[in-house]
Write a protein that binds this DNA or RNA. Structure first.
Lengths: 144, 144
DNA sequence: ATTAAATAGGATATTTTTATCCGAAATAAA
DNA sequence: TTTATTTCGGATAAAAATATCCTATTTAAT
């Protein structure tokens, strides 16, 4: 479904959201430990998220990654997925056809339509805030 | 969503189903041309489908791949996907957690549930026959 | 100014996926 | 029995994804 990079990116963003809501910046090391991911690879993904304005970085001593507190309830999963995996997950053809649309559909085009639409809707309507709240309350988990 | 191998496997199976319904065996060369895939790689995938009893092979001159005519309406997409990609597409965690279930869900577990269930239902209820009929009638396409 | 801590980013390594190649075994037809 | 055709399967190769390493740059505190 998502690439490893994207999975790490989502989990990292949730953890940064939680930390930021508590006024704390976090480093790749802390993030990697919290989400159980390879540190250097995670750092690369964080760079991509910064470039796409999903998260914010502060260089130098006492720096780290953070998310603007009043953006946490505005950032959607779709932005993170788009930043890392692009939009192929709901745009690309399910069977990899170069050209696949209503006029020239692949064999599963119609059958996939609703599933992909549901996925897209979910990603575009799920905020970092709600995911972060579930982690905070212990309703969901970022690792093991 | 699916691996390339799985995409090729699905398209190949549909083409074989069509050919078999017309009493013709087909070779990897014909299949690869029809579905626009790399021939040798496609041949490997066909071997996997044979091992998983999705399709049938006949060795030697005048041999090739075929599907038992009265199995075409019984074979489900799920069998093909399972043979090549396994069941991670609806079993694995959306965020790659080793352990992810109702008692220990990842942050998107609930949000993914219905999407994954829909996908699973679709794969388990879509037969090769209906996909083949659409290709035959020109309602859908296997390439470009 | 100096130092310590942090991100940025290029280079490289490893692993997985995708793809190719070739010889062996099977089989139908001549 | 010979030949041509075909699948099978192992060995590689190439490309993409995942992961690591190292140096430069930035910056807060002393």
């Amino acid at each position: 479904m998502f690439s490893k990079a994207c999975e790490y990116g989502i989990k990292a963003s949730i953890f940064i959201a939680i930390s930021s809501s508590e006024g704390k910046r976090v480093t790749p090391k802390e993030i990697a430990e919290e989400i159980n991911s390879p540190q250097a690879f995670t750092a690369k993904i964080l760079q991509a998220l910064v470039k796409h304005d999903v998260i914010n970085s502060v260089k130098g001593a006492y720096g780290g990654f953070e998310i603007d507190k009043n953006q946490i309830n505005k950032i959607k999963l779709a932005q993170i997925v788009n930043a890392i995996d692009g939009d192929k997950i709901y745009r690309g053809c399910g069977l990899g056809l170069e050209k696949c649309d209503e006029n020239h559909p692949c064999p599963v085009h119609d059958k996939f339509k609703s599933i992909r639409n549901n996925l897209q809707f979910m990603l575009e309507h799920t905020t970092l805030e709600e995911l972060a709240l579930d982690i905070k309350s212990g309703a969901s988990f970022l690792k093991v």
